[in-house]
Amino acid sequence: MGVREAVSGAERAKVVVEGVSKQFTRRGEALPVLADVDLEVHKGEFLCILGPSGCGKSTLLNIIAGFEKPSTGRVTIEGEVVRGPDPRRVFVFQEYGIFPWASVWDNVALGLRRMTDKGEQHDIVQKTIDLVGLSGFERSYPRELSGGMKQRVEVARALAVSPDVIYMDEPFGALDSLTRLTMRSELIRIWESEEKTILFVTHDVDESIQLAERVVVMSARPGRIADIVEVGLPHPRDLGSPEYGRIKNRLYELLGVEHSV
């Protein structure tokens, strides 16, 4: 953290969310989903957005990624207003956004299809597939892979274009708990080596503490930021440490959940 703190706040900001609110209209009735969200994400930061289901955390991420328009407010990335999705910032979906009709190789190569240097393209695709541990499955199709492997393909597809920012919407939600743990530690390994800015939406308190540098806790109806909690523990994180327990208590308290059952 030392070096990063030396840089001033304005320079560090990568993604800036200013006064964003969102409402849907259902049967002529306005339904507020997000109210007045302000947020700054630092360059190279791993930020988790934590909240109960229905708190608008996915909507917030979709607005930041440019898939949905905010009702009020705006999102800027390095000073540039977000008007739609952009290949420099890649979204990893929970329900497998990879194409089932394309092989692992073709899925990972999607963002590199316009590269003229085919040799270099080949090297990047192979390197990325190796990075997520899918060597040997290049010619496989998604339906032949397990849930965890499909999610690795999606992460590889995102990494292949070396994006500045990766958005992840509960990417490991559909996986079993052991696979989820493995995927988390691999994601941290990749984040540490590739220095990406990652915005990660989850409803899992442990997941947010294991991954994030800062956890943005949201409350529901309409969704707003309850507080932002610094984790500040070095990786690999000790799940049994008193500091971990303290943060966990704080997050549960913010979520308003009684967790000592």
Binding site: F67, P85, F91, Y96, G111
Partner: peptide
């Protein structure tokens, strides 16, 4: 599915290429 449409949009797949891919 919406995720595939959004994936395509995210990677800048448009027009004829969107039809084909």
């Amino acid at each position: 599915s919406l995720v595939h449409q959004r994936s395509a949009a995210n990677f800048g797949v448009h027009g004829f290429e969107l039809m084909r891919r």
